[in-house]
Simulated assay, not measured.
Amino acid sequence: MVANNVVAHVPDLHDFLEGFKILLAPGGVITFEFPHLLKLMQEYQFDTIYHEHFSYISLLVIRRALFNHGLRVFDVEQLPTHGGSLRVYATHEENTTLQENPAVNALCMEEREFGLESLDTYDQFSKSVVNIKCNILQFLIDAHQNGKVVVGYGAPAKGNTLLNYCGVGPELLSFTVDASPHKQNMLLPGTRIPVLAPDAIREKKPDFVLILPWNLKNEIIDTMSYIREWGGKFVTPIPGIEIL
C-alpha cells in the first residue's frame, strides 16, 4: 500500500492509520511519504506551513503513531522532494520477517539531537523566522529605494504564504510570473501581486528575480538564465536571502 504526500493533509491521523491497520494484509507493507519536519526546521522552511497541511511530521512521531495502531516502521529513506521528505516503510507489528534497518534508529537519534522533542527548539525557530522576514523585507526595501526592479518567479502555495507573512505587495514586488496559463493574468491572494506569463521578465528586464518555489531553483535558473544578459540576478528567500 502506498500513501505519498497524503499524511500531512489528513485531519484525523489516528483514524487514517487505523484504516491501514485494518486493510493491510498480514505480510503486507505500507509506504508513507511526507515532508520531513527535521528539514523544515533545519532550513527554516516556514513558507511550507499553510492551511492545506494539518500536520508536520518527524520520523519519531510517525513511528510512535504507527506503533499505537499495531504497525511497525522497519525502514526509512530520505528524499530531496519538497525541500526534504521521508519515505517510511511499515508493516504489522507481529510481522517479524522484515528486520528493522539501522537507518531508522539513526534518524530518530538525529531528530532527538536536533531537539525535535523540545519546545525550546520551536521557540527558537519562531524567532529565527522573524529575523528571516525582516531580512527579506530589508532586501526588497533597499532594492526599491535604490531604483532596482524586483519581480517574482512562480505562484506556488509556499510563495503566497511567504509574501503574505512578510507583508509584501506590488509596491515591492512588481509582479510574478508562472508557466501555468491557469494562473496568468490573475492576482496572488492577499497581496494582489499580478501573475503574468514568463515572457514578461524578458520584456521588463528586472534587476532581481525572486524565486518563490525555491525547491526548484536549479531548474528555474537554467530556464531563465538569459536574465544574466542584462545583469539580472536570481534571489532565493529560504533559508535566508541569497543572491545568486
Rank of each mutant, 00 (worst) to 15 (best):
E113V: 15
D178F: 10
R63S: 09
V130M: 10
Q78L: 10
G84H: 11
K233R: 15
P156I: 09
F46M: 02
A143I: 01
R64Y: 00
A8Q: 15
E113M: 15
C134I: 03
V7H: 07
V195S: 02
E33N: 01
P26I: 06
E242P: 05
T121A: 12
L210T: 02
D142R: 08
R64P: 00
A179Q: 09
P239F: 09
D222C: 02
V29M: 12
P237R: 06
E93V: 10
Y89R: 12
F139K: 00
F32E: 05
A8I: 15
A155L: 15
L66E: 01
H69L: 01
L60V: 11
A103D: 06
N5M: 13
C108N: 06
L137A: 07
V88W: 10
L60W: 04
A155H: 15
A179K: 10
V6A: 14
G154A: 06
T161E: 03
T96S: 14
A157W: 07
K158H: 04
H69Y: 05
S55C: 03
T91R: 06
V6W: 09
K183T: 02
S55K: 02
L163T: 03
E77Q: 04
L137S: 08
G240E: 13
A90V: 04
S55R: 05
P194G: 15
E203K: 14
N185Q: 14
I238Q: 12
K21G: 10
N146S: 12
S58Q: 05
W230M: 09
F34G: 02
S180R: 10
I227Q: 09
K133H: 13
